[in-house]
């Protein structure tokens, strides 16, 4: 039969490195016996003295941690801020990509709403759990071994301070917006005549949709000039942007979905082992248009709302570990 003291010492020693065990074993037993003797001398029964001495010594695993000098935490205050920043950055960048790719693949494979939502939720939880687990594991290992800890918990300096957007629309935004729209118009017109022998896009749409698209892109150019002259992101800008974006996204998606976007006479798509590259490409374009359009509408509205409240908007890619 093992005594209480034996059980206590065994439990503590289990979590102590082998080479220290014998010495701590002897010392701990002597200390416990000393404490018990002192209590017996002051009138307690031996049994009660053992119980109270061990109770005072407390949780043996905690004692073992202290003997072994192990931290009683997973990630300490040195690494915690970096861990939090890295994890939030990863979750915000990886999860949207995973969900988007998953949804597009599901749409192409079997566009049933239940499967699409189910797949998105499953992907979100699975990938999210993996990210949290592996990042935390790596940080816990760094915390315990100390390897590379000095490098990654580098001192904060002014260089790590984020930059914030001016509430004004910049000249760069004006130029890139105008150039982009101009290139799209040029591309739409030129593909009819020059790039390939047979036009890539359906020439039948010149009767209505392509001129409409060109008109919308011209409006887009005017929009960029207008934003620049207004000088910033206002509610009016957000609304006009949303209307314009919806105006060209909806017809394009409809053309793609009903197979009226590409020229049926054009057979220049890569032949990948008999796969229907054209419908794949259509699916991907639909996803890009929908996600990109939503992104544009939301970020512009977000910018306008923050500008209205006078709140600063951080420029992505600035500020230390932020991306």
């Amino acid at each position: 039969m093992t005594s209480l003291v034996d059980r206590y010492v065994f439990t503590a020693l289990r979590r102590i490195p082998e080479q220290q065990r014998a010495d701590i074993d002897r010392e701990l037993r002597a200390s416990i016996e000393d404490a018990v003797d002192a209590r017996v001398d002051s009138g307690e029964t031996r049994e009660a003295a053992v119980e109270s001495a061990l109770t005072e010594l407390g949780d043996p695993e905690r004692l073992a941690d202290r003997y072994a000098g192990r931290p009683a935490f997973l990630i300490g205050p040195d690494l915690f801020p970096l861990w939090r920043r890295l994890l939030t950055t990863l979750l915000w960048t990886v999860l949207p990509i995973v969900v988007t790719v998953g949804v597009v693949a599901q749409i192409l494979d079997d566009p049933e709403i239940g499967k699409i939502i189910g797949g998105a939720v499953t992907g979100l939880i699975t990938v999210g759990a993996h990210l949290c687990f592996w990042v935390t594991l790596v940080f816990a290992i760094i915390e315990r071994t100390g390897a590379g800890k000095a490098d990654i918990s580098a001192r904060w300096s002014l260089k790590d301070l984020p930059k914030y957007e001016a509430h004004r629309a910049t000249l760069g935004q004006l130029i890139s917006g105008v150039v982009w729209a101009t290139l799209l118009i040029a591309g739409l017109v030129l593909q009819q005549f020059t790039f390939t022998d047979v036009p890539v896009l359906d020439p039948a749409n010149w009767a209505f949709w392509w001129p409409v698209l060109i008109a919308l892109l011209v409006l887009r150019i005017f929009y960029h000039v207008w934003v620049h002259r207004v000088g910033g992101w206002t509610r009016a800008v957000a609304v006009v942007n949303a209307v314009l974006t919806v105006a060209y996204t909806v017809p394009l998606v409809w053309l793609l979905a009903t197979d009226r976007f590409f020229n049926p006479e054009f057979h220049g798509f890569l032949d990948v082992e008999g796969a229907d590259v054209r419908s794949w490409l259509s699916g991907i374009l639909v996803a890009v248009l929908v996600v990109g359009g939503l992104w544009d509408i939301v970020t512009t509205a977000w910018r306008a709302e923050r500008a209205r409240r006078g709140l600063p908007t951080k420029i992505p890619g600035t500020g230390g570990y932020h991306y």
Binding site: S31, D34, A38, R62, L63, R66, Y67
Partner: peptide
């Protein structure tokens, strides 16, 4: 260990055995 614990607590230092050892 135990003698030091006694000395310290008599001198008014609040220290527990599981910290001191």
């Amino acid at each position: 260990g135990y003698s030091l614990l006694e000395t310290l607590s008599r001198a008014g230092f609040e220290v527990e055995a599981n910290t001191l050892y």
